[in-house]
């Protein structure tokens, strides 16, 4: 086997190296609130097809994400640590349908998907701490019974 084909082990980051993710998160949370994506009303507008705003935000985010990934692959852009960018393929399973539907039900009630729950807490809507704890409970119950659910 040619030594060149052996991938080097992905570097593990620790301590201060992880701070960059905190900073990206800060920008992400800031944009979520400033674009009012965290608003219960904006989610209602979306599910009632009464405003373009949310479709514009999500659509533009996907377009930019898609273009960036295309460019990363086309020009084989490496990560800061010099690794090849890796994107795991997702596998079809029933969970995307059943779980997706269940999440949708919750999204319309809370007016928040997981990202906005964190942003709402930060923005001072402290009742949503209960939403967060309950979301943790939902995740835990899924994990506890995952092997019994259709997958």
């Amino acid at each position: 086997m040619n030594a060149k084909t052996i991938d080097k082990a992905p570097s593990e980051e620790k301590g201060l190296q992880l701070l960059k993710y905190l900073i990206v998160g800060i920008f992400f949370g800031l944009i979520l609130v400033k674009s009012e994506v965290v608003s219960w009303f904006r989610i209602q507008e979306m599910f009632r097809f009464q405003s373009f705003h949310m479709y514009g935000v999500i659509g533009a985010a996907i377009a930019v994400g898609m273009l960036s990934v295309f460019l990363i692959k086309k020009f084989s852009i490496k990560t800061l640590a010099g690794e090849t960018v890796e994107i795991k393929d997702k596998v079809f399973k029933k969970g995307q349908i059943i779980g997706g539907f269940i999440f949708g039900l919750g999204w319309a009630v809370t007016g928040a998907c997981p990202g906005p729950i964190f942003a709402q807490i930060g923005a001072g809507y402290s009742v949503t701490l209960i939403t967060f704890i309950s979301a943790l409970a939902g995740t835990w119950v899924y994990g506890r019974f995952a092997h019994k659910l259709p997958n």
Binding site: K90, G95, I98, G99, F103, C113, I130, G138, Y142
Partner: peptide, 22 residues
């Protein structure tokens, strides 16, 4: 309804689906 049930559906559903809007 709006925090406990809603939050539970979000946590359970996203994990079952293997991801959320992000």
């Amino acid at each position: 309804i709006f925090y406990v049930l809603g939050g539970f559906l979000v946590g359970f559903g996203t994990r079952y689906a293997g991801g959320c809007t992000s």
